[in-house]
Design a protein around this nucleic acid. Structure first.
Length: 760
DNA sequence: ACCATTCTTCTTTTT
DNA sequence: GAAGAATGGT
């Protein structure tokens, strides 16, 4: 390959050379990290445990390749899993080698694939200005197709069907490549493949693609066009992949194609942190690496610089319960003291948990810990709510990562639809969204006419609308309205040339009356929406073209608008926390059914349990100094109160690393051995842990404790009951949890039993 | 066409 | 316990 004056491979196998010979960027690396950076030729797998300096290795490796002139920046492909990781890497590398870093092909799989797809869109039947649909749009399209095909959407939820299609895409299967035995069986009446085909056709007609298509289309292009593949293979001399354990098959195939020539591919990952199998990630990719890339070298990074020995001990013990690991043991490299034990604390219910956690935070804060050094990591998004409420009432600043995303808000999506339609007239989804927004008197009837015309002419809705205007299919009033709308779109499209995106957006939102609509709106959330729209216009200032902006929005689903300002606690899901670290980590909701999550277990069985355990491992290893685990003995789920059993994962943390306690008044507070929340033996006798759960209903307000006592939900005919809204009455029929009650004042009503209480 | 009300179903994790 | 869908009234 290259004539490398700087090929350090030979010289730098341990023991390392004298420090004097080091390029500056290699100083301070431990021997394994040094190998991971300097073995540049041939396939290399870096198994990098949590906190072992993975990011540092990646950025240094990139720097090493470029600064040693092994390749020019644009000949390096560096793939990350999240936008955050990409940004961070670019910043760090820029700091080391300056503006040259900008030329590196660095980004997420999706961003990089998009870059390729824009260039070769025509080869898969797209035009270069194509839109990227978000999941909402995807479901809308699929739903329409399912209804058209007469598939019962009630029986086969759109999201489920979409899920299967996506998993097919994750494996790199176009409709023609779905294997005969994998066609989804009974799902959607056995017509899944047909729907997939129709969906793809529909997307092409919309000149749009979804997230999975970004990779799938590029795969098709690389497979079918040898010259394109050859050009990319020649361009990318070095390939770096972050979070390799989370790549799916499509991504793997993409990488393998690109790396096939020189095979200078370096994948960094940790099988113990694979937490995205539900999204099609194949842990197998990392386990198979040496097989797929013969002659691959493997470097293990096991020196952990992040956490205390206690935390590492706990995390290692926990993860050892998983089978089929590559095997890797973290050793503490930094701290000399064991550090605080893991604090396991039992509380009564959700609100008590939030109170307890926030109290701990405040106490740490008083002792001088920054709020920004603390994080609450939850299993599922909805769990953040109780904490938010508590943090708001105590006035503790916090920041939510990943929660409600700016670009998913209704008003922002509407505004985007205007811009999308201007940029891309074939975008029917955008058209439908805004045709009558604000109200223009163009309702179902008008839309139907346009649809009909669209189908007859085989053209997009916007164009069909134009042809409808030439006829008298519409009554004069809607016709005038439609003409106004179409002409406005044309006008704005023409303005696109002379205005920058931000100005254009302002003009559009103003001219269309959309902004006005919210300003006039009396609802309590309207002012916020107006504000968001103004923020939206401001945000556009950073972009040169509309397309750049739309692309950014499609790919960067993080809310980077709220940058880290001030000292605040972080609230996020365990998934979102991957790659981050905090001094203090709070892990609430460690109960069976919640974590490990029941739905996950229902679907994936043993392998799902192992993934849940890896998630627990990720959570523990985010902490530098302290971990607080909490579990509640009951929790409100939907409208029921559910008894909770402490998570088996608590039992998997050896006693020597943890200290258990619970609220006063809870049985077995302290160190009792037989209490379910102090040590529940996960490996114990019964596998039917789900049976330990008992549900009982809340009886409205304060009376629920009474209900809890007799724990029955049932009323019988003749019982006198009380209802908040209808007052007193007598039960005259019972059907499951539905009651028919003769109310003294309100008459006979059907009510759910949880809304009435026994009359005192 | 539009609005208001009730009914329903759902909460794993996200590029 | 919210947000969407479906229904019914103006």
């Amino acid at each position: 390959m290259m004539d490398d004056a700087f090929d350090l491979t030979e010289d730098y196998t341990p023991p390392p050379p004298p420090v004097g010979m080091d390029p500056p960027w290699l100083t301070g690396l431990n021997p394994e990290q040094r190998q991971a950076v300097t073995i540049t030729e041939g396939p290399l797998l870096v198994l990098s445990g949590a906190g072992t300096g993975k990011t540092r290795v990646l950025t240094t490796r990139l720097t090493h390749i470029i600064a040693s002139r092994l390749a020019q920046p644009w000949r390096v492909l560096a793939v990350t899993f999240t936008n955050r990781a990409a940004r961070e890497m670019r910043e760090r590398v820029s700091g080391l080698i300056g503006p040259a870093a900008d030329a590196v092909w660095l980004g997420t799989f999706h961003a990089l694939a998009l870059r390729m797809l824009r260039k070769h869109a025509d080869k898969v039947g797209l035009q270069s200005g194509f839109s990227i649909l978000d999941s909402d749009d995807q479901n809308r399209v699929l739903k329409a197709l399912m209804e058209e095909a007469g598939v019962d959407v009630k029986k086969w939820p759109v999201v489920m069907v979409m899920g299967v299609i996506q998993r097919w895409k994750d494996r790199g299967w176009t409709p023609d490549q779905v294997p005969g035995q994998e066609t989804g069986g009974e799902i959607a009446g056995g017509r899944l493949l047909e729907l997939y085909r129709a969906y793809q056709a529909r997307l092409l007609a919309l000149n749009a693609c979804d997230f999975g298509d970004l990779l799938l289309h590029v795969l098709v292009i690389l497979r079918d066009h040898v010259e394109v593949l050859a050009a990319y293979q020649d361009q990318f001399r070095y390939i770096l992949v972050d979070e390799y354990q989370d790549t799916n098959t499509a991504q793997y195939l993409w990488l393998r194609l690109l790396a096939r020539g020189h095979r200078n591919i370096c994948c960094v990952g940790d099988d113990d942190q694979s937490i995205y199998s539900w999204r099609g990630a194949e842990v197998g990719n990392i386990l198979r690496f040496e097989h797929d890339f013969p002659g691959a070298q493997v470097v293990r990074l096991e020196r952990n610089y992040r956490s205390t020995p206690t935390i590492l001990g706990a995390a290692s013990a926990l993860i050892r319960n998983n089978t089929g690991r590559l095997g890797k043991d973290l050793r503490a490299a930094g701290a000399t003291e064991d550090g605080d034990p893991i604090r396991v604390y039992g509380v009564w219910d959700g609100p008590a948990e939030a109170r307890h956690v926030v109290e701990q935070m405040e106490s740490l804060h008083r002792r001088g810990e920054r709020l920004a050094s603390m994080a609450v990591l939850v299993r599922a998004g909805f769990q953040t709510r109780e904490f938010e409420e508590r943090l708001i009432t105590t006035g503790t600043p916090y920041r939510m990562v990943g929660g409600l995303r700016f670009y998913e808000r209704q008003e922002i999506r509407d505004a985007m639809a205007y811009l999308r339609l201007i940029e891309q007239p074939a975008d029917d989804l955008a058209f439908e969204r805004i045709i009558n927004l604000p109200k223009r008197g163009l309702g179902d009837a008008a839309l139907q006419t346009i649809h009909l015309s669209s189908r007859a002419l085989g053209c997009p809705l916007l164009q069909a609308a134009r042809s409808v205007l030439e006829t008298d299919e519409l009554k004069p009033k809607p016709r005038a309205a439609l003409r106004g709308f179409v002409e406005a779109i044309d006008e704005w499209a023409a303005l696109r040339e002379q205005m920058d995106p931000s100005e254009l957006a302002a003009t559009v939102l103003d001219g269309s009356g959309y902004l006005e609509m919210w300003k006039k709106d009396k609802s309590p959330e309207a002012p916020g929406r107006v504000e968001n729209l103004q923020e939206f216009i401001r945000g556009l200032e950073d972009y040169d073209s509309l397309m750049d902006f739309l692309e950014h929005v499609s790919l960067v689903m993080e809310n980077d608008s709220k940058a880290e300002s001030g000292d605040a606690v972080t609230l996020m899901t365990l998934h979102a926390a991957k790659g981050l670290e905090f001094d203090t980590v709070f892990l609430p909701g460690w109960e069976e059914e919640v974590f490990p999550n029941r739905r996950a277990l229902d679907e994936g069985g043993v392998s799902a349990l192992e993934e849940e355990r890896r998630l627990a491992y990720v959570g523990l290893t985010r902490a530098r100094k302290r971990v607080f685990i909490t579990h509640a003995s009951q929790r409100r789920i939907f409208r029921d109160w559910v008894m909770c059993v402490p998570s088996r994962f608590i039992g998997e943390v050896p006693e020597e690393f943890k200290e258990e306690d619970s609220d006063v008044g809870l049985m077995g507070g302290g160190r009792g051995q037989r209490e379910p929340w102090s040590s529940w033996d996960g490996a114990g006798a019964d596998s039917g842990w789900g049976q330990r759960k008992q549900a009982f209903r809340e009886k409205e307000g304060l009376t629920w404790q009474v209900a809890a006592r007799d724990s029955a939900g049932g009323f019988s005919v003749g019982d006198r009951v009380f209802h908040q809204k209808f007052g007193h009455g007598r039960v005259c029929a019972v059907d499951g949890n539905k009651l028919e009650v003769d109310f003294d004042k309100a008459g006979r009503k059907k009510v759910i039993d949880s809304f009435v209480s026994a009359e005192p």
